[in-house]
Write a protein that binds this DNA or RNA. Structure first.
Length: 581
DNA sequence: GTAGGGTTAG
């Protein structure tokens, strides 16, 4: 690739591949000669186009421009294929001006040329321009449609994407993949899964590895283990190769659905592993609280000659956080830049503040924030606020709240925290004022929401939700459990609930938290002994954590809850996090 | 064999 001069002298007039095909039919030797010339031409074409493609993929603008020079010198720059590749390369290198000039100078243009232009506009973020060109195109093929669809999807304009998807005459795998990936990458996970189901119902197109790589993250986020397992079987059934992307996506799905053992199995099974694979298995172990394994994987990875990046260190630091390994965490934090050349980002500082705050070292956490080379964000301060809440350091907490509200006047957690502190200090007027201010500013608390999958369907529950058709049964299950739990000595931890309601209402509010509803639904709709798996969008509250521990003992079932930051495996009245989270 | 679809953290 770096010595394109070796290509040898070009055929006399390479841009004339069109006439070559129809000329020189006078005699056999002539025809043979022409044939040979054509073949040589194609060979050069092929070499140029694939080298240009490589430059585009590697974003290697130095070699890209060099090869453009060679192409011109050999007289190939008006060859249709080569010209298309050149334009595409320049778009992908971000050198739009070159691409436009080349496009304008084309003697002939085909669908591919126009598709390249549309794709180039999309890459530059000019979707509306792309759409204008697309609408003008007389001849369109499925590539044109898919290009437009993913152009919209990349910018989050899913409705426009979907409109085109529905409008296109013939859909192939790539069109389906583009739309599914669009949903998946814009966090519309249920839509991604729904469309995947429609794809199978349509039956005309068989999903390929790319389809699955787009659906698996959706399963991972929603905790849709049934579908994930089905995909795993589908992979072995159709003898698909477990390549890097597919293996990574599958392992991550298992890890995020609470099956760390299966994740490890997939990981071990993969013949090739890259940095992403290692990061997945390290982060996965961390989420399950298996800090030792996360660290072991880290060292194994180093032995394989992999260089850790910022994501790898996020995994390591969260592993330390969830296991309370403060000193280890500090050690890695210091070493990451010195020994591995990975500069800590805000996220890493956030992780460290979290680690220190949870361990009760609030002073040190605050010092760390003040020593940050960049501006601390709401997440970093929020981690400290969490510590203040656990260790009831109200003085520091108030100070932190001020800083948070300076950054984000709509930070709901701060208002709730402040109101609760005032209330617990008996300053009910201040508490009321705080809540009023919250309402006046239009601050909305993120509603707690839990998902559970039963019979291939993911059900969603909000706090106090009564929209489920089996609502009555769910609530009587909760009442029944409540009685048994009281007998087992459980007392609701009402101190973190809003203070403007009385004790009985507080208990009620607690008992209808979304995770409890989901668990109750799981209990009535699955057979005895089945493990219950719930995913929650926020962190599990203290009371729910206690309650679920007891429930797991009463019903003799494993209950696995994934909250915003980690996994809790409840069994026989205990939780895998050892109450440290 | 020039154009379109893909995994990890926050």
């Amino acid at each position: 690739m770096h010595r394109p001069a070796q290509l040898g002298p070009p055929p006399p007039n390479p841009s004339s591949s069109y006439y070559l095909a129809n000329s020189d039919r006078r005699s056999k030797p002539h025809r043979r000669q022409a044939h040979r010339r054509l073949r040589r031409l194609r060979q050069h074409e092929y070499t140029f186009t694939s080298v240009l493609k490589a430059c585009a993929g590697l974003t290697d603008s130095v070699n890209g421009t060099k090869i453009h020079g060679v192409v011109t010198k050999c007289g190939y720059d008006f060859n249709l294929f080569v010209r298309n590749s050149l334009i595409d390369m320049y778009f992908k290198l971000g050198l739009e001006a070159f691409a436009y000039t080349l496009f304008d100078d084309m003697p002939i243009r085909d669908v591919v040329s126009w598709n390249t232009l549309v794709s180039g506009y999309c890459l530059g973020g000019y979707v509306d321009k792309a759409r204008w060109v697309f609408d003008q195109m007389v001849e369109k093929n499925s590539v044109s449609w898919s290009t437009m669809i993913s152009g919209y999807a990349r910018l989050g304009r899913l409705e426009d994407a979907r409109w085109l998807f529905d409008a296109m005459p013939v859909r192939n795998v790539v069109s389906w993949n583009a739309m599914i990936a669009g949903y998946s990458q814009n966090e519309k996970y249920s839509d991604a899964i729904e469309l995947f189901r429609q794809m199978q119902q349509a039956g005309s197109v068989r999903p390929n590895d790319v389809t699955l790589v787009s659906v698996l993250p959706a399963c991972a986020h929603l905790g849709s283990l049934d579908l994930g397992k089905w995909i795993d079987k589908f992979i072995s059934r159709s003898r698909m190769e477990l390549g890097l992307f597919l293996g990574n996506a599958l392992a991550d799905m298992y890890a995020k659905c609470g099956c760390i053992a299966e994740a490890r199995q997939v990981f071990d099974q993969m013949r090739e592993k890259d940095l992403v694979s290692w990061s997945i298995i390290i982060t996965g172990s961390a989420m399950h609280g298996h800090a030792d394994e996360a660290l072991a994987y880290f060292y194994e990875m180093l032995e394989c000659g992999m260089k850790p990046n910022e994501i790898t260190f996020m995994g390591l630091l969260t592993a330390c956080t969830h296991a309370g390994l403060v000193d280890k965490g500090l050690e890695y934090f210091h070493v990451m830049e010195q020994d591995y050349g990975v500069t800590p980002k805000v996220e890493h500082y956030g992780c460290m503040v979290d680690l220190l705050s949870r361990a009760g070292r609030l002073e040190k956490a605050e010092d760390l924030i003040n020593s940050m080379p960049m501006k601390p964000n709401v997440i970093v301060w929020g981690a400290l606020l969490g510590g203040c809440r656990i260790y009831k350091d109200t003085e520091r907490g108030e100070r932190v709240v001020q800083r948070i509200l300076e950054l984000d006047s709509e930070h709901s957690g701060s208002y709730v925290y402040l109101a609760n502190i005032y209330a617990s200090l008996g300053r009910l007027d201040d508490a009321a004022k705080c809540r009023l201010r919250m309402r006046d500013n239009g601050v909305m608390k993120t509603p707690g929401c839990s998902w559970i999958e039963v019979d291939n369907t993911v059900y969603e529950f909000f706090m106090g939700d009564k929209s489920h058709p089996q609502s009555n049964k769910i609530y009587s299950m909760i009442r029944e459990l409540g009685l048994k739990m009281k007998l087992a000595g459980y007392k609701p931890k009402t101190d973190l609930v809003m203070h403007n309601i009385d004790e009985e209402e507080k208990e009620d509010a607690l008992s209808t938290h979304s995770e409890k509803l989901a668990i109750a639904f799981g209990l009535i709709s699955t057979s005895e002994g089945t493990t219950i798996r719930v995913v929650k969008n926020l962190r599990v509250c203290n009371d729910c954590h206690e309650a679920i521990k007891i429930i797991s003992g009463i019903v003799q079932r494993g209950i696995i809850v994934r909250d915003r930051s980690r996994f809790h495996h409840f069994n026989n009245g205990k939780c895998s996090c050892n109450d440290y989270w």
